[in-house]
Design a protein around this nucleic acid. Structure first.
Lengths: 107, 107
DNA sequence: ATTGTATATCGCAATATTACGATAAAAGTT
DNA sequence: AACTTTTATCGTAATATTGCGATATACAAT
């Protein structure tokens, strides 16, 4: 039905899925990578860099901000977006906790 | 439009997004975790474990198999699913390559 | 042979996501 | 003040995802 039955799963599982979803679109991956390279960037930079419309970029930035991976500070008429270092480490740890659960062999 | 403009992004970025998408649903996270705990499991185990219909579980298993994270071997009338160790390490490395690109400070 | 178990796939309905034009709001520029 | 730049949000269309009932197939058991 397109609706996820979130109540069937644990808090941790839902959180893991929500965080992974932030990385599940190439535009958001590209935004993150550009943000890392440039240290910081603004919406209109990304409109140039990627070939997407301003409204679309803004929407992706909001999703990344909502999950906490990036943060934006107002700078006059523009927004200065950058990685949120604390959250970044936290998310990396979250993934590695899952990855490290599997040690070894298979059937 | 719901259509992702994959041609705007690099191969690596599209791959990263595709892999992240595998983890972007709590049912798939739950399947992976159960698969790790049990070492291996079958479709009907998961129907019991999670509260989803058999057809739904099967669909999620297929998506995980398509991205290569899990593999299934036929065992009589059932499928024995388990983590694909090689691919698992590869995916972990893929995430950490992205995570390690960001070192340090922010705006 | 018939019945039961296990899984995959099809078809559909409900919902979510992606993309963008249009517009609004806020700050800087002339 | 009028204009430009920058961004966010709204509304909408196109497409994707999620979930499941209803099958179909394959093997196992009686």
């Amino acid at each position: 039905m397109g609706i996820t039955k979130a109540d069937l799963f644990s808090e941790v599982q839902n959180e893991m899925a929500a965080v992974a979803k932030a990385f599940s679109h190439p535009a958001r991956v590209a935004i993150i990578e550009h943000l890392i390279k440039a240290n910081a960037c603004i919406n209109s930079d990304l409109v140039q860099e990627l070939g997407l419309a301003q409204a679309t970029i803004s929407q992706h930035l909001r999703e990344l901000k909502e999950i906490g991976i990036i943060q934006g500070t107002i700078e006059g008429s523009r927004m200065n977006y950058c990685i949120n270092p604390g959250r970044w480490k936290q998310v990396q740890a979250q993934f590695n906790t899952l990855f490290d659960q599997f040690k070894g062999s298979c059937c």
